[in-house]
């Protein structure tokens, strides 16, 4: 129906829809994806994987990111329980592919934010954000620069990637971040909240380029 309408009408309809509606619509078919691509051109510059809120955000330079979709796994977190219990309809599902793995997700909607939450099995909890991220980049025609916001305490849920472009992270343990930097390459900028950590001169952290450190000391 939507694809048979005139161009202006299609754009008027899309204006009334939210970002997550555009995302789901873009997953419907190639023609629908092209329509969303055309509509969202120059509206967003990049996307962010936010592990603080477990959401993927779309960002325009100079503005805060807007949540598109959240993800959650069966891995227990107190907030997961409230999110899980607030949903009653578990009939909706969606399938993503990442590294030849089929990730089947159940869909619920956040009671206050109104955005969808994609629930996956625990073993896919690191793959799912990357799968969603790549889909979002494709649908919204955004360059696939990987930007991640996370806290070292949630390293077990860090997305399944060895290379990141930009990262904002917080850490209380210096060794933990040094271990992290051995496994992951940061290609562009790092913003690091060090807390009370004290860095030695030969620390790997100091070899980072375009780095900004925050510390109360």
């Amino acid at each position: 129906m939507l694809l048979k309408l005139p161009y202006l009408a299609q754009f008027t309809i899309l204006k009334h829809l939210e970002l997550h509606d555009h995302f789901f619509l873009g997953l419907c078919s190639k023609r629908a994806r092209n329509l969303i691509k055309c509509f969202s051109r120059n509206k967003n510059d990049s996307s962010v994987i936010n592990l603080y809120s477990f959401s993927i955000q779309l960002q325009k330079t100079g503005f805060l990111g807007k949540d598109v979709v959240m993800w959650a796994s069966c891995y227990y977190r107190p907030e997961n329980e409230t999110l899980y219990r607030s949903n009653t309809n578990w009939n909706r599902s969606i399938i993503f592919w990442y590294k030849d793995k089929k990730i089947k997700c159940k869909i619920s909607f956040h009671s206050t934010k109104g955005i969808p939450i994609l629930w996956c099995k625990d073993k896919y909890k690191r793959m799912l954000p990357m799968a969603i991220y790549h889909s979002i980049c494709e649908i919204f025609s955004i360059s696939p620069i990987i930007q991640i916001k996370f806290d070292m305490s949630r390293l077990s849920e860090f997305p399944d990637t060895n290379e990141i472009d930009n990262v904002i992270t917080g850490c209380r343990d210096k060794d933990q971040i040094e271990e992290f930097l051995k496994n992951v390459i940061i290609r562009n900028a790092t913003q690091l909240w060090l807390g009370s950590c004290q860095l030695s001169v030969d620390s790997v952290i100091l070899s980072l380029e375009h780095a900004l450190f925050w510390s109360p000391k």
Partner: peptide
């Protein structure tokens, strides 16, 4: 039409836009 599509997932949208 936007109301028909709002808050739907992919499968439901496919039904609405009759793809």
């Amino acid at each position: 039409i936007a109301r028909m599509l709002r808050g739907k997932n992919t499968q439901e949208m496919i039904k609405v836009i009759t793809l």
